[in-house]
């Protein structure tokens, strides 16, 4: 199984329950905005502790409330491309990538840096500061940084949202290529089923 998730999380006042059982290479999690898709990703990455349930990814148990298992986020090896990118503002783009690479030292890279830079077309952005990038550029750098952390699995939060159709199409093609080339489970969150139809081998609906 690539993703085996059955959790209840409570990021705010409201409880959210999610159940995902998928052995697909790319699993899409779709549902209306605000339904709690990002909370599920955060729980898988270890940034949000579920109040109950269990999470395992690629056969590894990351969280199990009953057995008292809660692997800290830095040991989960998630490649998480946040919807809000979260690039480090005090580091240039290249240094943001360095950050991921340095912490992944000793682990087997899933893709070479040169190839990430080429695939995501960010060669011209490396010397820039994050706050000078456009929305689409920020998102590509965030995906690059996630890929370079030698992850065991990828979490992509709304990678195509708020991009113009042409850019969305390009990024979509790229995700497709990553899916076929990388041998790690990927989970993609989207509010639009249409966006993910051609990418996902399995679609899980929330809400």
């Amino acid at each position: 199984m690539s993703f085996e998730v059955e959790i209840t999380v409570q990021p705010g006042e409201r409880e959210i329950s999610g159940r995902i059982s998928s052995d697909a290479r790319l699993t899409a999690l779709v549902g209306a905005s605000g339904i709690g898709k990002t909370s599920v990703l955060n729980a898988i990455a270890g940034l949000l502790r579920p109040i109950s349930g269990s999470i395992s990814v690629a056969g590894r148990v990351l969280f199990d409330a009953e057995r008292g298992i809660d692997i800290p986020p830095e040991k989960r090896h998630a490649g998480y491309a946040f919807q809000d990118a979260r690039l480090f503002p005090h580091r240039r783009v290249a240094a943001n990538l360095d950050y991921a690479e340095k912490l992944a030292k000793g682990r087997k890279p899933i893709i070479a840096r040169a190839e990430v830079v080429r695939l995501l077309d960010i060669d011209g952005l490396l010397v820039r500061w994050p706050d000078t990038l456009s929305g689409g550029e920020v998102r590509r750098v965030a995906i690059a940084r996630a890929l370079l952390s030698a992850p065991d699995f990828l979490l992509l939060d709304e990678p195509l949202a708020a991009l113009d159709p042409e850019r969305a199409e390009r990024l979509s093609t790229l995700i497709e290529r990553l899916r076929d080339r990388l041998e790690i489970p990927m989970m993609l969150v989207s509010h639009s089923e249409r966006d993910v139809a051609r990418l996902a081998s399995k679609t899980v609906r929330m809400g």
């Binding site: 979260r86 480090f88 950050y99 991921a100």
Partner: peptide, 27 residues
């Protein structure tokens, strides 16, 4: 300092102490 940046550092493999040293402290 945006706490979400600390979360990002953690998912990239930084312990909470390391995330403090590389994100919260410099910012």
């Amino acid at each position: 300092v945006d706490r979400r940046l600390v979360g990002a550092a953690r998912t990239l493999g930084a312990s909470s102490w390391k995330a403090f040293l590389t994100v919260t402290l410099p910012l």
